[in-house]
Structure formats: structure tokens, C-alpha cells
């Protein structure tokens, strides 16, 4: 098995774990971490696809895309954390309840 295949499979596993976490956990921080794990999976997938067609060098485009993606993901995560913190300050809640 080639290395990029291991990467690809790992990325799929991470993605699924992340998505499961987002839907199944209720705690704010757990959910946010789950989205970050999803993101990790997606970026790993991009990087793994950079090695294509047995090229001697890596395809640069996925790397450019991943950097943009990571910036966006970090910003989103920061925003989500800020929201979670503010909610905790206002109400003391730290997880979603079903009635809201």
C-alpha cells in the first residue's frame, strides 16, 4: 500500500469521526472540536491527493487550497469558541438542550 493511500483512508476516517461527533455530542466545546477534526480529515485528503500520476514532485494546487481552508477553519472555530464563551457568561450553559 502506498503512503498516499494510507493518508486518504485516514482522512476518510477522521472525517467520519468528526461528523459523528458534531451530530452526537451536545456540549459546545465537543461539537467545536468535532468540526475541527472533520476539517483535519478534509485537509489531509487534499494533501494526500497532491501525489498523483506518479509525479516526481507534489502538485502545488492542493497545498494552496489547504492553506486557505485552514485559515477559514481556524477563523470559524475561533468565532464558535467566542460564541460559546459568551453563552456561558450569560446563562451558564455549556451544552445544547433540546428545547431550544
Amino acid at each position: 500500500m502506498e503512503i498516499y493511500q494510507i493518508y486518504s483512508m485516514t482522512s476518510a476516517v477522521l472525517f467520519v469521526i468528526g461528523m459523528g461527533g458534531v451530530f452526537m455530542s451536545k456540549h459546545f466545546i465537543k461539537k467545536i472540536i468535532a468540526t475541527i477534526i472533520m476539517g483535519g480529515g478534509v485537509f489531509l485528503a487534499f494533501v494526500s491527493f497532491a501525489q498523483r500520476d506518479a509525479l516526481s514532485f507534489a502538485d502545488p494546487v492542493p497545498h494552496a487550497l489547504v492553506i486557505t481552508g485552514i485559515v477559514v477553519a481556524v477563523a470559524s472555530a475561533a468565532f464558535a469558541l467566542a460564541l460559546a464563551r459568551r453563552i456561558f457568561q450569560l446563562t451558564g450553559e455549556e451544552s445544547f438542550t433540546n428545547d431550544k
Binding site: 472525517f15 468528526g18 461528523m19 458534531v22 459546545f28 461539537k31 467545536i32 468540526t35 472533520m38 476539517g39 478534509v42 477559514v72 477553519a73 470559524s76 472555530a77 468565532f79 464558535a80 460564541l83 460559546a84 459568551r86 453563552i87 450569560l90 446563562t91 450553559e93 445544547f96 431550544k100
Partner: peptide
């Protein structure tokens, strides 16, 4: 804020997918 966070998490999940 709570519904906004829910919205944001859904949005991130959608984007990542």
C-alpha cells in the same frame, strides 16, 4: 447566541462536507 452557535456549527459541518 445559542441558536447562532447551532447555526454556525451546522454551517461549518456543511462546508467541511
Amino acid at each position: 447566541l445559542v441558536s447562532g452557535l447551532r447555526y454556525l456549527l451546522a454551517a461549518i459541518t456543511g462546508s467541511m462536507s
